[in-house]
């Protein structure tokens, strides 16, 4: 295509947008609302994923070995643990080591417990990590059934809540986003249909004097593209600045050691690119839908 022609298509597409006034406004708004929701969910889910990943280090199962178990029994327990499917890693912490770590962690106050060294009350312990943190609970239940196990400990409640929360948010997000996306595509398709109806004579003449179909299609394609990307401008800026403010005021110092939010960059850049791409795809999709059946002659 010649550069001159491309310039013409952009001008024509822009003209259509101005000409359709209210419908342009309606479809850009639909894209805006859709992308605001999509973007908010994206930020939320990315942070939750980040949280879940950072917790993975802490997703460990402590397996306390029977106090009475001798070396042979410990060895067979270790083999049983190794045989379990979906196990990521198995570490062994002998009770002496465990006690030292405990005393160290208490600092000065640890001195009171020095005396325990003679009569160590701790169990030898295996520390297990699941390959998939979501499987932690199932694995813990299995381990409880093994011989020479006195008890099993893992952060049951937090994980169950966290994982069911992320799953729920994902499902709600996907349903909501799909619904909104289709509404936006539909509105854009209708806006462009209006253009096509208003320009029926023009299209008819273009066909009569030998314009190719792709030549006729381009301005509508550009109209859709513009509608979609215009719709992305407000969500990108609102979510970008909003997240930046949030991160600077609350996000950076939650006071929670185990929970930190993702920093503004590169998160908002990634989100912005994604939103612009979704906007463009929605716009082009809408235009293809409405132009297709009109150009057949």
């Amino acid at each position: 295509m010649k550069v001159r022609t491309f310039g013409r298509h952009i001008r024509e597409g822009g003209k259509n947008i101005v000409r359709n006034g209210w419908m342009t406004f309606a479809s850009v708004s639909a894209v805006t609302v859709t992308l605001l929701v999509v973007g908010a969910f994206l930020l939320l889910i990315m942070n939750l994923n980040h949280f879940a990943n950072s917790l993975e280090d802490d997703v460990e199962i402590r397996v306390f070995v029977d106090l009475g178990a001798g070396e042979e029994e410990q060895e067979s327990l270790r083999e049983d643990l190794d045989d379990l499917p979906e196990i990521g890693s198995v570490d062994y912490i002998p009770k002496d080591e465990g006690l030292e770590a405990f005393i160290d962690s208490l600092g000065e106050q640890g001195d009171y417990f020095e005396g325990l060294r003679d009569e160590n009350p701790l169990n030898d312990t295996f520390v297990i990590r699941a390959e998939d943190p979501q499987e932690t609970e199932n694995i813990a239940v299995e381990i409880e059934e093994l011989d020479h196990v006195e008890g099993v400990e893992y952060g049951r409640d937090i994980f169950e809540q966290l994982f069911s929360a992320t799953d729920f948010i994902r499902v709600v997000g996907v349903v909501l986003v799909l619904g909104l996306l289709f509404t936006a595509v539909f509105l854009i398709a209708n806006t462009i249909k209006l253009t096509i109806i208003a320009r029926k004579t023009e299209i008819q003449i273009m066909k009569l004097v030998g314009a190719t179909n792709s030549f006729i299609r381009w301005p509508f394609f550009i109209e859709g593209l513009l509608l979609g990307t215009f719709g992305a401008i407000i969500p990108v800026s609102v979510l970008g600045f909003g997240y930046h403010r949030f991160y600077e005021t609350i996000g950076e110092n939650t006071g929670l050691e185990f929970f930190e939010f993702l920093p503004t960059f590169p998160l908002v850049i990634q989100t912005a690119i994604l939103l612009l791409a979704i906007g463009a795809i929605v716009g082009v999709w809408g235009s293809i839908m409405s132009v297709r059946k009109f150009l057949r002659v």
């Binding site: 010649k2 022609t5 013409r8 003449i205 273009m206 004097v209 030998g210 314009a211 030549f215 006729i216």
Partner: peptide
């Protein structure tokens, strides 16, 4: 001119 524009 329109008829000539659309055939580039």
């Amino acid at each position: 001119a329109f008829a000539m524009e659309v055939i580039e």
